[in-house]
Simulated assay, not measured.
Amino acid sequence: MRVFDFDRVSKLSPAVPRERTEASPCAACTVRGMTICAPLDNQELAQVSAIMTSVELTSGEPLFDEGEEAGNVYNVTSGTVKVYKLLPDGRRQVTGFLFPGDFVGLARQETYAFSAEAVTPCLLCRFPRSKLENLMQRMPKIEQRLLNIASNELVAAQEQMLLLGRKTAREKIASFLLMLSKRARQRGQADDPVMVPMSRTDIGDYLGLTTETVSRSFTQLKQDGVIQLLPNHQVKLAQREALEDIAGGF
């Protein structure tokens, strides 16, 4: 039987804790530069990663519902999410579409003011609201980043008000396609052809149009040679300048 050698062990160097070297899951994020994590250094990123969990949604699966306790906030890292409100008469108003890099779930109240649902399969980073607020107190960079995000959301809301109030159906569809193109370019993706993963009904509920009017407007733009409808929910902007003219200087 082997005897424990106390004398030998006492002469060994004391153990030194080793720093963990595995990368934070945030480090490999392809849209990090557009998320709340963009201004953070590696040490700060590790603290954010420690409170984050990943969420996966299938097409049509809800992320949260209007009136639900606003306990979490989210960053979209892949896929498309729609946010909407249900009107008292049962109609639905889509207020926006979210893409990789977008933030969702900010709420001043204790409950969400709108619903969010996956348009396509999605991946999101989920942060407990209370823990993120605590980090914001220690990391002003996160708070500043959220202010920038809120400012961008205000601009998007103003653009939608213009779409709903002053444009014809044809102008709305043209503006919508150019908006999707612009958003893709901001994410570093190809801006033509444009990915249009949402349904005609979703588009109509966003633009204040019926599903039939949306389909008819797409068909008219196609027949005029301004766009081409491609497989896999893609739309080719065949005549971008003409589309911009139709949109009224989007």
Rank of each mutant, 00 (worst) to 15 (best):
A157F: 10
P25H: 03
A46H: 02
M139S: 06
G105H: 00
D65V: 09
F250K: 08
G33M: 06
Q186P: 10
T77S: 14
V3Q: 15
L57G: 05
C37D: 03
Q186A: 15
M198H: 06
L229P: 02
F99Q: 11
H233K: 15
N232L: 13
D41G: 01
G249A: 15
N134P: 00
T211P: 06
A23T: 14
L87Q: 15
R138Q: 07
A190R: 12
T77Q: 13
L45Y: 01
F6D: 12
L124R: 13
L243M: 01
E153F: 14
V83S: 08
A70K: 05
A113Y: 03
I246W: 00
S215N: 12
P121G: 12
S24P: 01
Q93W: 11
M198P: 00
G225M: 06
E66V: 15
G204K: 00
T58W: 02
T168A: 03
I173M: 04
F114T: 04
E44V: 14
K82D: 09
G105P: 00
L177Y: 01
N148M: 11
L146F: 15
L147N: 12
V214T: 01
D102L: 09
L162V: 02
I246A: 01
E56T: 08
E171C: 07
L123H: 06
V81S: 04
E44C: 12
L124C: 10
M1F: 13
S151W: 08
L229Y: 01
T58E: 11
E61K: 11
S130Q: 09
I142A: 01
P17S: 03
G249E: 15
N232D: 10
L45T: 06
F4H: 09
P88E: 10
F218M: 04
P25I: 12
T21Y: 14
D65I: 14
A116Y: 02
L132S: 04
M136Q: 13
L106S: 05
V104D: 01
V94P: 06
A156Q: 13
M179E: 15
R20E: 10
L106P: 00
R91M: 10
V226T: 13
V9R: 14
P197A: 12
T219Q: 15
R145F: 03
E22N: 11
K11V: 12
E159Q: 07
L221E: 02
K85D: 05
V155C: 07
G105S: 01
E159N: 03
A28V: 07
T53Q: 03
P197C: 13
R145C: 15
K85S: 06
M34Q: 15
T213Y: 07
A70V: 05
E110T: 04
